[in-house]
Amino acid sequence: MTELKPDIEKRSEFDIEINGTVGKPFVDNPKMSSRNCDVFYGDKQAIFDVNLDIANNEIIAMIGPSGCGKSTYLRVLNRMNDTIPICKVTGEHTLDGEDIYGKKQDPVLLRARVGMVFQKPNPFPKSIYDNVAYGARLHGLASNRSELDDVVESSLIKAGLFKEVKDDLNKPGTGLSGGQQQRLCIARAIAVDPEVILMDEPTSALDPIATALIEELMDELKENYTIAIVTHSMQQAARVSQRTAYFHLGKLVEVNETDKVFTNPEHQLTENYITGRFG
């Protein structure tokens, strides 16, 4: 019987101390940056003192075991946590040097500049056209129908979906396959012409082929946008990102070039995680 017991003594990741972030969390001339970021849900602290810069036109991957705070941190960057009443965010957060939690900042305008793609494809129960046109209409990005048509078409082209749906623009977006729906959500986010796109596990509900399509798409999008992606797949992080941040129990443990994180991690916890010792 004894050999069946989980060997708690070997699960040493709880004993390893995290003293600040190792690696290179800071870059010159960052697109977005956070200093001393703490996040609380009621009395419970979800994120502890995260300091991180996101560079222009890079893809930064955020990895870590479930509940480590990586999604929560992502939602700090476009103030989506504002929609949760008990959530409190502290620290200094900037976009192009502007304080995004400042009194003058309107979260609505911020979210137009920092778009988001969610874990589960969540197209609106509207037509494909209306889904993509939604944000453009909200922000008055097109003054007439033909301009709006152009915005919809170019967004769908950028999201690699146009060929598949060009004859079905009036069909409901919810009728597409899971992978198509997620690309529709990306097209919808692009249509607002954001500067940063936050992706919260965008392929976790998709099959490998749809995932591959979206990863290719991200590579193209990086020419024009800055992307932060949260992922549970270490292969995905290794394939798409230039830098990787490893979160653990609400703390940012290590930030380094992706190659370095996956070949020669600096921190013991990162090594344990990427070698599959836990997670």
Partner: peptide
């Protein structure tokens, strides 16, 4: 998820409710 999608694109609360 519908609300999140709308807020995530910079819609206000009233736009989200109406549309």
């Amino acid at each position: 998820s519908m609300r999140d999608a709308s807020y995530g694109m910079g819609a206000t609360k009233s736009e989200t409710i109406r549309q």
